[in-house]
Amino acid sequence: MVMATLLFALLSLFFGRYPKPGFSIPLDWKSNALMRSILFNVRLPRIALALLAGSMLSASGYAFQMLFSNPLVEPGFLGVSQGSAFGAALMIVLGASSTVAVQVSATVFGLLALAASYFLARRFRFGGWLLRLVLSGIAVSAIFSSALAVVKLVAEPTKDLQDITFWMMGGLWNASWAQIFSIVWVVILCELIIISQRWKLNLLSLGEKTSFSVGINVKRDRTILLVVATVGTTLVISITGLIGWVGLITPHLARKMFGSESSFSLPASMVIGAFFLLVSDTIGRTLLPTEIPIGLVTSLLGAVIFIIILSLKHQEGKV
């Protein structure tokens, strides 16, 4: 799987619209400055971002599904996606001149949404901790959705509204080495923390009493992993915009192939996530003369895979 992903990463370097549409290996790249620039400053950072974002979104999705003991949740579960979307839209409407400002705002509001979900859940007096988190996540998502709708209403329709719409459809067209280096260390740290806690993820997917009885500090460990998964997700989507389905689908695929125990299926899920996003981006930038936002490609591919998985699940009776 790792080899296939690396091989496809190498091949996708030669997919594009220059020197001709589709797949072409430019033999004159050493002497062609434009080709070199396209390969190393446009396509390579884009491929690197796809691998980084795909693995992080997948790791977050996997962690969320285990932490909530629910195979149908994804990283945006606690209002993070809607919070980030609001943050990005707000900065676009306020006329931010740099993409960094949009990224920072998206990250800050994504984390604010997580904090709001967490503190609301602590104040709720209904149900267990997980149910309270789910309910507060729904409430926070709804609040940021409404706020986002207001921002879109007042956005200047010929430019700002288009920018907001594109951000919400996701895309890697802005990928640059500078952007990647601004997040890569923290994202890799988040990934390493999640991988190091893969055994604990198994235990946290059990009932709260069972997890507790086998020596887990349930509330502390769950909170730490939620924060780590959310920070990683927020940093990624601050650059890529909203990309759905990766965090939902790839853990399912990994569990189908390697079983539910996280020692194998978590790393596998991350590799599949990287591969899935890379394939989606390559399709998005080569299929049509104009680029298809990656969020649309992942939604389409994800929905098809989801239907197939659910059909298989029905036959086998297991996740």
Binding site: P71, R255, S260, K318
Partner: peptide
């Protein structure tokens, strides 16, 4: 415990 609900097929 009295019972355990399994959501993942370990």
């Amino acid at each position: 415990p009295q019972s355990e609900h399994f959501n993942f097929s370990f």
